[in-house]
Design a binder for these strands. Structure first.
Lengths: 229, 229
DNA sequence: GTCGGCTAAATTGTATACAATAAGCCAGCC
DNA sequence: GGCTGGCTTATTGTATACAATTTAGCCGAC
């Protein structure tokens, strides 16, 4: 707990952002207990601001908050995982279509840099960072569509997806097939709304199919595990 | 500030819920300043819990929170109003379709009671309560679809719609044409997903068209109003 | 008479103290 | 030996105290 790791701005948004980043990059595993005093000492702030940050994260479903029991990194159930991707399926394809009509060269450059950075991170072995950049790609598309409200929803869904991937990832071969993102980039550059919508729809289906959402081995193993032994 | 009006449970969710209800029923107008001490005294809790409640409402965009400047009931811009209804257009029609496949007689009864209560409230002159019940109808449909995640989004969007209606309502004739809701109820009862989706889509379009989202007379009248006089 | 800065009041931001609740632990009992 | 009971500790819930910031009003200078 050296001084370098603390002494940042004391506002709760910074703390929430740092925690969210750690969750997003899979440095904080689902189920990890987040004790207020500990977090506060790490960031050099009091419990007051830590509590505000945790409540913020709980509202985004990144953290589970039980009364008198404290906060933990959320463990989405299989049902919740399905719901998140169903919501994304409703929002993102049509949003990609809207984005295609508004994409500027600057947007293309930014998306391309995301793909490049993701590629670099993957080859550097930093899968967490790659995953986060992959999510940023989706958020960026919602931003290009100039829809703040939908962008906020997508941002939350992408963050929750990161937790879902941490729990239910199965197909370890192609971590984040940037192929799909590259194809999307092309459709956006060509202002081809039809293709963008279809590509996004297919991409999300691919994502879901890369998860193991069949049985219940993940979070609800409290009882099952105890009975199995 | 009699004792009857305070002395409820001191948790922030209760306070947030009470405030949200007041906003939803148009008893708290957009732009109203929410001073922490005042709210705390009204509900008989300390600023700590009031702050938590306000942050919660701010996350739902029902309240605007500016650093060192406090909280106010949000004043959605025209742009935000459009975005909210665009998001609803993406989420609700398809959700109504899903709901139609799962609607039970108990669901029908509950929806019917919402329509009836809305009718009663309207004839009793309680437009605020009618508006809230009208919103509950939409939320109930998302709940029937058994989609907690989408339901949470719809809940937030309905609440924000209430603020938008407070600011931009124009067509005063048919307050909440329960005709549309009644038709939707029929489609759900018949498990007619196609009709439910179409009816919901049309209903949302009607809602938007009943608003005056053209010029900028609403919230940004800070400068315009001053210049006009 | 108006503009500028200065002071005071009000309000929010943060930390800490205390109370309440839950979890862990040891002892005693069946 | 295992279980139950109360005690201890750790952690959260809430209130309050203090610091920082904004806001309003006022006085003085130009």
């Amino acid at each position: 707990m050296d001084d370098a790791s603390r002494a940042m701005e004391g506002n709760s948004e910074t703390v929430a952002g740092r925690l969210a980043l750690a969750i997003h990059e899979h440095r904080l595993a689902p189920g990890t207990k987040l004790v207020e005093d500990e977090v506060g000492e790490i960031f050099g702030v009091s419990r007051t601001v830590v509590r505000a940050a945790l409540q913020q994260l709980a509202h985004d479903r990144l953290v589970t908050l039980k009364r008198n029991r404290g906060a933990s990194v959320a463990q989405p159930t299989i049902r919740e995982a399905r719901e998140v991707f169903e919501a994304r399926a409703l929002l993102e394809p049509r949003t990609a279509r809207s984005a295609a009509a508004r994409t500027t060269p600057a947007d293309i450059a930014r998306l391309q840099s995301h793909i490049d950075e993701e590629h670099d991170a993957l080859h550097a072995g930093d899968a967490g960072r790659a995953l986060r950049l992959s999510g940023l790609f989706h958020i960026e598309i919602a931003r290009i569509a100039d829809q703040d409200t939908i962008c906020a929803f997508v941002t939350q869904l992408v963050a929750r997806s990161s937790l879902i991937i941490a729990l239910y990832w199965q197909r370890r071969n192609a971590l984040c097939e940037s192929h799909a993102h590259h194809a999307l980039l092309r459709a956006l550059a060509d202002h081809d709304g039809d293709s963008a919508e279809e590509l996004m729809k297919g991409h999300l289906l691919d994502l879901v199919s890369s998860l193991d959402l069949r049985n219940l081995p993940g979070p609800p193993r409290t009882l099952a595990e105890a009975l199995g032994r």
